[in-house]
Design a protein around this nucleic acid. Structure first.
Lengths: 181, 181
DNA sequence: GTCTATAGGGGGATAGAC
DNA sequence: GTCTATCCCCCTATAGAC
């Protein structure tokens, strides 16, 4: 599952195969089919684990007790780390790109994951604005969608333009949010 | 080439085949190989045409003479139209997602296209800020990267969450830029 | 320029031995 | 639980007839 998750973020759903995983593990193709009969089930389990992990993180007191700005930095660091790890891409972004060729169960998982990421980011933005540390106009839900879409797109853009481009995007978001009126 | 471009935006480089194009045209696989010997050459020509078209547009007086805000709206409309056309995705974003599995010549084309989009957007943002219609902090290049990444990511996110989500992102960008200090 | 036919590879998946 | 062997499909690409 670790390898499947890594390949998903690196090559996308249609870009990796049982053979890739088997080669890394030093086993045969069929051995993986024993644990995950179909590719759909394998990836479904990977996304579910990813979702569970995120819920664990945000409900953990270590994150829960952070200030809004620290929470945002923590969230950004997920993407920065992914980028640093061989130019990987957000799992949600990778799946959305291939959404039109995904089996039904994976579409649902992708939707659910994206909703969960957005919901947390929206709540954090709202909390920060009410606390007076974030400044922005409009609905926190819309600002959350803007930031998440930019993080996903930014990781992809960084593949063509280099890691620096992603860091400037993250910094620009912070400037936008922290700018005093 | 029209079909190839459409498929690229719909299914990505690894998601479409000669067979798909041939079926739509009512011809055989081999007929396409006659005009474009390899898939790499076909897609290279598609991206080149896309780049040329964009340069034509931005150098046309119809766009050149628009106000900064109108230019921005025009640029956004490219993405809105793509989204409206069966949930297509930005060509640059589609290619960046599969960047790691792209032939060399296509990587270069993808880089060049992204640079050109960014350069125009940066210039437009700068022009608008100097004219006093756009407000934002920091380098226009960074703000341009933020907006472009968000447009690319937003189109992908809209696949999972629906077209409305993309429109709210676009509106949020305008709110951010036009907010009076 | 398009056709039929085919080569050669990779993919997901299964059967049955061990 | 993993192995070998195999099936069937789709892919890119080419050869040669028309």
């Amino acid at each position: 599952m670790d390898l499947a998750e890594s390949f998903l973020q690196d090559k996308g759903f249609n870009g990796f195969s049982y053979a890739h995983i088997a080669a890394e593990l030093g086993v045969r193709n069929a051995a993986i089919h024993y644990h995950f009969p179909s590719k759909e089930e394998l990836v479904c389990a990977v996304i579910q684990r990813y979702r569970d992990r995120f819920q664990l993180w945000i409900n953990n007191s270590r994150v829960k007790n952070l200030s809004p700005l620290e929470k945002l930095d923590w969230f950004f660091s997920i993407y920065t780390d992914a980028r640093a790890d061989n130019g990987k891409v957000c799992l949600a972004g990778s799946l959305e790109t291939e959404f039109n060729s995904l089996p039904g169960s994976l579409r649902e998982q992708t939707e659910a994951l994206t909703h969960e990421l957005l919901a947390w980011l929206q709540a954090t933005l709202q909390e920060g604005r009410e606390a007076g540390v974030f400044q922005f106009n409009g609905d926190p839900a819309d600002k959350a969608a803007l930031i998440l879409s930019s993080l996903q797109g930014g990781l992809q853009m960084a593949r063509a333009l280099g890691t620096d481009k992603f860091h400037t995007v993250v910094e620009q978001h912070k400037q936008d949010l922290l700018a005093s009126a």
